[in-house]
Structures are given as C-alpha cells and as structure tokens.
Design a protein around this nucleic acid. Structure first.
Length: 445
RNA sequence: CGGGCUAUAGCGCAGUCUGGUAGCGCGUUCGUCUGGGGGACGAGAGGUCGCAGGUUCGAACCCUGCUAGCCCGACCA
C-alpha cells in the first residue's frame, strides 16, 4: 500500500475524550471513529487488524475441530422467552419492535439461537461431539461504555458452543477450548493467563477467564508469579487426545491465579511470599461448562445408545475480538505509539523514502516496494512528500514492527536501514538482505 | 440511575464572569525555500458558536428547557 493512496487519518494531538492509551492511540492512528457512546466505525487500518485477529481465531478454531456458522444480530424475543432470559437479562439487552409490533432484540450472546439450531437438526448421539461457533457483532447496552473498543456497547466477539453426550465429553470440549485459546493469544503476541472466574449470569460449574496483565485492566487479579513463565510454544497438540488437553489445562491452571471475584486469601497465602502478585488485567476471553442449563428448557436432546432421549451437555466459550485490539495496544506500546506484534500487524514493513522526488531514492523505493509486495510482506510505503521527521513519527505511531529507511546518503553505499520498532535498533544492509531478513522473520511466525 | 464536568472550524483550545464585526495552535489548499525525527516564510479556504425558546436595539456570552459526550460509582466480553 502506498501511503499517498491509503486512507489513514492520523491525529497529531490527543483527542480529548480518550482516557487510556489504547483508545488514544487507536484514535490517533486513524483506526476507529466514534459514532455514539460505545459504538465505533472501523477505519481501514483498524479494520485490517480486526480482520487479522479474526483470521487467527478462525484458524485456531478449525485446528481444534470447531465449525463456523453465522447467526443474526437481530433476533426474535420468542426463543429468549423460552429459555427464561428475556425477562432476566435486564436493561443491558437492547430491545425493539418490528413494524408488526413483534418484540425483537439485538443479540448480546447466542446460547438460545445456537441451541435452537441444534435441536432442529441433531437427534442422535452419533452426531456428537459438535462445537459450533461464530464471530459476530454483539450489543450490550452498557450503562457506561468507556475505554474505546475495550468496553464498547457494540463489540465483535467469537462465541462458541459445544454439544456433548456426557459431562466428561463436555469437559474435554472445555479443555479443548482452553488449549485453542492459549494458542490463539500467543499467536497474537499476547500472554493471556487463564484464571478461575465467577460464572456470573450465564451460570455453570466450570469457568476460566483469560486475562492480559495491564495497568489499565478492569479486573483486579491475584496470581503466583510462576504462571507467567508457562507458554504453549511450539508443542504439537492432538485436540482429540483427552489426556493431552487435560494435561495442558492442569499445567496452566494448577498454580494460583484468580480474579477478585473468586480470590481466596487463605489459598493465596499458600503461594510462596516472593511469588505472590496482585495486578490488574484485561479480560479477553472466557470459557464455561454449564451442563444442561439451556438444553433442558429448550429441549435440546439426543438419543443415546439405548434409544433414550437425553439433554446434551453444553458449554459456551468467548473471545472478545474487538476488545483484543485495545488489549494488544495496552500491552505493547511506547511514548511514540503502537508497537504491533508481528502476528497481527496491519503491515509487515514500512518503507520510508527520505527524499521524495530524488530520482535515485524514488527508484530504490519503488523496487523495494515491488519486491516486498512479491514476497508477501505487505509493505506500506510512505511516498508522501513529507519531511523525514514526519514520516518517522507516522511509522512509529501506527506501530509497524519493521521499517526500511531509504535515503540518498545510504544509497551512495548501496545500503538501506532496517529498524526494529520495538528495540529501535537499526542496521545498514543492502535492500536484498533486508527483505530476506524480514521474509525469514515472518515465515517463522 | 446518583455525583462531577463539557459542547465554539477536521483535531486541541481561548473568548462567556463584565452582551457590541468569532479568535489561536495543529491540520488543510497554493507558492517559494528546505530535506535523516512532526522545518521556515508568504498567501488562502474553512464556523447555523450542540438544539429550541426567552430577555435585549443587539446574545457564543444572560435566563429556561432539551439533547449529546466525558469522568467517578453501581454493572460487564
């Protein structure tokens, strides 16, 4: 992408309404525009990152054997009356009537709808296990939205639902989700710690929240410092292997890690003193097992081996995809702007032409841009007639992890400069070597 | 919903107390110079002062009502 042809409305000054760094940087980097309280338009670069996150979620869900569907945002109230939640959900649910006066709502979650799909089409234990998920816009009419996309009213969320014959199978689905979520967050360059959580209005016996540690987090968390050393890394996972998935769960959840909702001072005291930590965290996902809470009232049953209808065991599992943008920026930025992890960056490399109009520099940049594009590096080329300082500031603000700087001075010696956004370290090398190094870096993700 | 605050050019703000031709910085357009960390100079464009009503010869400014947004709290992916 040539910056001169892109739509990137960056701001030099801080918007007055943005209180926290991720919100401020998303506005300054021209990623979002507020439409109403807690509701945002996604401008090209914000939308691009959102799509990247979404793709990672889809890939990891597919790997775990989960199947994507798409359900409507506007739903009839009927199903919600059947489950008993229409009256129970309260003011957070945005309600409306259609032209015939029928009660409608903007879906805040989709247990009812997915259970209805299930009961309409599945009737045998032979069709289990089944996990259906979607990535779709949700709406919760929060009393007080804040922090930009971190706490919007409209938000983009992956919500998945497992259907299993037995509690044991459903708990395997729970573990499978935990493993796939850990992989998902790591690919996004995030450390999200599974913490025992409160099951809240959805109910259920088993639930973990995934928290990214950040000073601006909404939840207070308590944990054993040793949990932050655990990584999924490169290990091979067989998602159908119950023992392996259970093993990962135990590995990641046996150390103390809880949010304030479930914090237990007595248990926390057993953690070695020098490893006791309290901090703040941003919740970026949650998994639940809730058994037959919805299958019972909605009549979602299958025939078991004996021909007897039994309600299915279910769980639901969410990742706040739009919120993740905020979480990633909270976890990865400096005074100059965003620092995108390579797995989610909107562009792989920024090319800065220091002297637009200089024949040699222009030619070198064009060639670099062409090669980088051919290598799949998805470059953004700052070809505007700006001064060097402005171009550097822009690249830093929008957080591209690598920058290739091209100027007449270096070109005299046949070199360009490759700079890491994260470390600020620069190295001079030929354009070919710079591209080779970047291709290698991105191939290893 | 309770408490606090704001609304003036695309963004950030002054002007309101004390009514009298709507300003500044950034951005933006054109030109010249400049060219390795948001450069300089010159010339422009751009505003129903959130909305409605009232007071007044005259309202961004005073009065009343409304709307929207922000912060703290209860609530939440």
């Amino acid at each position: 992408m040539r910056m001169s042809r892109y739509f990137l409305p960056i701001l030099k000054e801080n918007p007055a309404d943005a209180q926290i760094v991720s919100h401020r940087l998303m506005l300054r980097a021209g990623m979002i525009k507020q439409v109403a309280s807690g509701i945002y338009s996604w401008l090209p670069m914000g939308f691009k990152v959102l799509r990247k996150l979404e793709n990672i979620v889809h890939e990891e869900q597919a790997r775990a054997g989960h199947i994507a569907i798409l359900m409507p945002t506007l739903q009839s109230a009927d199903l919600w009356r059947e489950s008993g939640r229409y009256d129970g959900y309260g003011e957070e649910m945005l309600r409306m009537k259609d032209r015939h006066g029928r009660d409608m709502l903007f879906s805040p979650t989709a247990e009812e709808m997915v259970t209805d799909i299930f009961r309409s089409h599945v009737s045998s234990y032979k069709d289990l296990p089944l996990t259906l998920y979607q990535i779709q816009w949700k709406f919760r009419d929060e009393i007080r939205p804040r922090f930009g996309v971190m706490r919007g009213r409209e938000f983009y969320m992956k919500d998945g639902y497992n259907f299993d014959l037995t509690k044991e199978d459903a708990l395997h689905a729970y573990n499978r989700h935990l493993v796939s979520y850990l992989r998902t967050y790591e690919r996004m360059g995030l450390q999200a710690i599974p913490m025992r959580a409160d099951s809240g209005p959805i109910g259920g016996d088993y639930t973990h929240e995934f928290l990214v540690l950040a000073d601006t987090g909404e939840s207070e968390v308590f944990y054993d410092a040793a949990v932050t050393d655990i990584r999924m890394g490169e290990r091979d996972i067989d998602f159908s292997d119950k023992a392996q998935c259970q093993g990962v769960l135990e590995e990641f959840t046996s150390l103390y890690a809880r949010t304030d909702e479930t914090h237990d001072e007595a248990l926390f005291a057993e953690v070695p003193k020098d490893r006791q930590r309290s901090a703040r965290g941003i919740e970026v996902g949650q998994i639940f097992y809730f058994g037959t809470t919805y299958s019972d009232p909605l009549g979602a049953k299958v025939m078991d081996e004996t021909g007897k209808p039994v309600p299915v065991h279910m769980g639901s599992h969410g990742i706040g995809v739009s919120r993740l943008l905020g979480a990633i920026i909270e976890a990865s930025h400096d005074d100059n702007g965003i620092i995108w992890p390579e797995g989610v960056t909107p562009f792989g490399v920024g090319i800065v032409n220091l002297k637009q109009g200089d024949e040699e520099a222009d030619t070198a940049c064009e060639a670099l841009y062409k090669s980088a594009t051919a290598l799949g590096l998805d470059p953004i080329y700052d070809d505007r007639n700006e001064r060097a300082g402005g171009k550097f500031a822009t690249m830093d603000l929008i957080g591209i992890p690598w920058r290739i700087t091209v100027g007449p001075r270096g070109l005299k010696n046949g070199v360009v400069e490759l700079t890491s956004r994260k470390t600020g370290v620069s190295e001079e090398m030929t354009p070919e070597l710079a591209l080779e190094a970047l291709a290698k870096t991105y191939a290893s993700l």
